[in-house]
Simulated assay, not measured.
Amino acid sequence: MLQNRVDPWGKLCAVSERGTLMGNRGVLHNADQKVVKQWAHERWLTCLLQFEGIRRAKPFSTLNNYSELFFLDEATAFSAGHRPCHFCQRKRSAAFKAAWTAANVPAETFVPMPTIDAALHEERAHQNGTKVSFNAPVRELPIGSMFAVDGAAFLVADRGHLQWSFKGYGAPTVFAPELIAEVLTPRSIVNAFRHGFTPLVHASVE
């Protein structure tokens, strides 16, 4: 089983659930299909599983120019620090970029994507591979954000705070509004959510 399923902390895990989106951080595996690094560049993408009839190689093929990663949904991918690919998700990427720019550098009319990638990289991972997070009251988090409590990840959804798993989301959990939680979604992405961009979520949310 390949170590290519991504959790909200950005960790690469070996589980059977595939998820609804693919993505990459460059070539992370060796010839034995073992993960030997957490990222190869700062451009962490989220891609569609299928796009315009493109036939993708078998995951972790030695012929690939990236290691295929899989996510439960877009909210999970954003929590891990990925953003939409501009090739297979052009409109989605443009909408995210516009919201991110307006929320984080409103005085600028144009911010190149490499600049956004560099900013996200500072907000998502330390050099030793551990997750960058920040603390905030649960009541201040917009829809689509993810936070951690006692080692479990939760999604802020319309119907409450839903516990995350590779299979989907659980029933709503009640937290005190003043609870200070560890926020997993990078800060600038949370700002983009507050500015009107809402991530797509797994069907189990409903």
Rank of each mutant, 00 (worst) to 15 (best):
A119M: 11
E68W: 06
A181M: 05
A40M: 04
K37H: 03
V35P: 07
V149Y: 14
G10T: 07
P172R: 10
G53L: 02
N4C: 04
S204W: 07
R43T: 02
P177W: 07
N64T: 10
K167L: 05
I143S: 13
R55I: 01
E42H: 10
A157V: 05
A203K: 15
M1G: 06
E74F: 02
F51P: 00
Q3R: 15
S165C: 01
P114Q: 05
E17D: 12
N104Y: 08
E74V: 01
H202Q: 05
A125G: 04
F78S: 01
S93P: 02
H161D: 03
G26T: 06
C47V: 01
T62P: 03
I180H: 12
E140P: 01
S145P: 08
V138A: 15
Y66E: 07
K97T: 08
Q50T: 07
G19Y: 10
E68M: 09
A181N: 05
V174D: 13
Q38S: 10
P199K: 09
L162T: 01
V138N: 05
F78I: 00
D32T: 10
R187C: 03
R43C: 00
E108D: 10
W39K: 11
E206I: 02
R124Q: 09
N128P: 01
Y169E: 02
T62C: 08
R187E: 10
R187F: 03
A171M: 11
E108Q: 15
G196P: 10
A107H: 15
G81H: 09
P112T: 04
K167E: 12
F60S: 07
A94I: 05
G151Y: 09
M146C: 13
M146L: 14
T173V: 13
I180E: 14
G129I: 00
R90L: 08
R18P: 00
T20H: 11
A75K: 08
S61A: 11
A152K: 14
L12N: 13
T185C: 06
D158E: 15
A203Q: 14
E74C: 02
Y169W: 12
F51Y: 14
N24F: 02
S145H: 08
G26V: 03
T185D: 06
